[in-house]
Design a protein around this nucleic acid. Structure first.
Lengths: 349, 349
DNA sequence: TTGAAAGCGATACCAT
DNA sequence: ATGGTATCGCTTTCAA
């Protein structure tokens, strides 16, 4: 708990002035400080285990090299975490540190969290949400360079760049995967109506059908929710007591937990997956999709990449590396199909 | 993007000196500054939307009011998140901010992460892991008040306080719940051998049996791993092709994902839960245990409370509020039994 | 009751 | 080539 060495300590030990220490340790020694002194300084710094006080630096430079991240709900979600993980990767590699504040879904806390971050002189801000959604951008975010990840500005004239997954294409390609396997009766457990992500995924499902000239049975579409029990109950409604000829041959789910419920129900009904029924997930949730039995074919959300991209945009803006100043206000990152065991050719009837 | 108002701006607007502003805004105005000036200062501060620069404060006070949190693996885990959530709760309520650095399981990054945090003058450090485990405490942690959450010092003479769940009692009480329901043939899917948490839970299972004079069948204990597929395969080994009289009537799992695998296998074998087979989980994982069909009886890990407790200890030490200086180096937080639908009376034979 | 000045740690400019 | 000094924003002590 002894205090850290300061530049002055190093200077004393090396028998030079603070300024010399600063110059040498920042690589501007040559041409300004004698070779000998340089060596002594470097050695002294080494011996004292010196590293500059970041607080003092921040005050001096008026740049803290800290990025504030405002999160929706990191706490209970493995999703948010991946976005933040990707963002932090990039930040760290460029010499920045991230400070995460989690509002635990209470948007009323947004403003004060941002004030706190601003008081700490963050160089930039990032707003992250668990699911794709529109947000009211807190006013404070406009005071420093900012970016939105997995959410977008609800305002008529969006002022911030946002990075979001391409859910529409994701929904379409997931459906195309099933259509390509010969399925023509594909049920959909679509999440909840109020989620933009869910709506886009459903639209993708419709688009794929339209493009393939395959009719859609509206009674096969349930906006059921997101959890295992919803998947289970939805499947029971679709399959229990229904004659094989009338059964959908595939169920597409708006997330992987729904798919778990579907698999559970299928098992209880004595149906084999994928022989009797194909199951398609969404998200590629860690430790769920890959370890299910059978493992889930799913549409992976590019969360890490969203985080990386958003942070890259942000730091480019902060550091003025921003070559493409005239880029659009939106970056869409594609989802990726992960083919595993839960989907297979449609059963012949 | 205009710069924030400083105390000097407020002073000018109110027609007083910086010192007066400082005194008034810190509640030390009375007796030092004229009532009138006080009002003018407060009004000016309001108008300029003034709040002090936390960086400057940190430098001046030699206290940053920042707590550094070093995490194992927040990114992919909903578990870690809950500990950090609890810790952050407490920190925020006491005027501190937390900075989380995630090493993504790479302990080689520990030291540099702590250096970074120390350079930022954090007032304290907390080390958080996903699963209960021994760690080599990075040297830097001894330079400021520190605490361990969900992990403990591997060293012969532990130097830091740690807060961990009482896994032994958890394992025992989970087993007692099943014994109380009349089960006498309880299989155990025990996680992986190298996890201290798993070992303690298994020991609790043994202790409960011993206390109840119930024999243990060693061939019912599998150290299988932690994932859905492990639960599925373990269950198949235990139940598939086994005559009803020879089957265990309950399966206790070292986590909830294993329990999902068990339920899946049971469904495929045509067994009803809990009528034919009781399933006991562990962790009370969010959105899994509560939404399974049937919902899982489980032993909840007190993650949030671990985070809260650890942060409270840490801040007490930092602020000298530490009345109980002579407390032990270990705090154990009890797990909590959550009774849901997946366990029931043992079937009569 | 008020204001001036020192100091927290580091950097950059400007004399020497 | 080198060291003294102002500066970042704030608090605190001391003098007026």
């Amino acid at each position: 708990m002894n205090r850290k060495a300061t530049a002055l300590d190093v200077a004393k030990r090396a028998g030079v002035s603070r300024s010399a220490v600063s110059l040498v340790l920042n690589g501007r020694g040559d041409g300004n400080v004698a070779k000998e002194s340089q060596d002594r300084i470097r050695q002294a710094a080494e011996e004292l285990n010196y590293s500059p006080n970041a607080i003092a630096l921040s005050l001096r430079n008026q740049r803290s090299r800290v990025i504030g991240i405002l999160a929706d709900e990191v706490v209970v979600s493995p999703f948010d975490g991946n976005i933040i993980g990707g963002a932090d990767d990039v930040a760290r590699s460029r010499g920045f540190v991230t400070v995460v504040m989690d509002t635990e879904r209470d948007t009323a806390r947004d403003a004060s969290a941002i004030e706190t971050l601003l008081d700490r002189q963050v160089d930039g801000l990032m707003y992250v949400t668990v699911g794709l959604k529109p947000i009211d951008v807190p006013h404070g975010m406009l005071r420093v360079p900012s970016v939105l990840a997995n959410c977008y500005d609800n305002h008529a004239q969006p002022q911030l760049h946002h990075v979001i997954p391409d859910e529409l294409t994701g929904g379409r390609e997931a459906t195309e995967h099933l259509l390509a396997l010969g399925h023509r009766d594909i049920a959909l457990l679509g999440g909840s109506e109020d989620s933009p992500a869910a709506r886009l995924r459903v639209q993708g499902y419709r688009d794929a059908h339209a493009a393939a000239d395959a009719p859609i049975r509206e009674d096969r579409i349930f906006m059921a929710g997101w959890d295992i029990d919803a998947g289970y109950r939805g499947t029971m409604k679709l399959l229990d007591g229904v004659s094989p000829a009338d059964r959908p041959t595939a169920i597409m789910c708006a997330n992987d937990r729904l798919a778990v419920g579907v698999a559970l129900a299928a098992a209880r009904l004595g149906l084999s997956v994928p022989e009797d029924l194909s199951i398609m997930g969404y998200d590629d949730e860690n430790r769920i999709a890959d370890t299910m039995v059978p493992s889930l074919t799913t549409m992976a959300l590019p969360l890490r990449e969203i985080g990386r991209t958003a942070m890259t945009k942000l730091l480019d803006a902060i550091e003025g590396t921003d070559a493409g100043k005239g880029t659009t206000a939106e970056t869409m990152v594609p989802c990726r199909l992960v083919t595993r065991e839960s989907t297979g050719p449609a059963p012949t009837r």
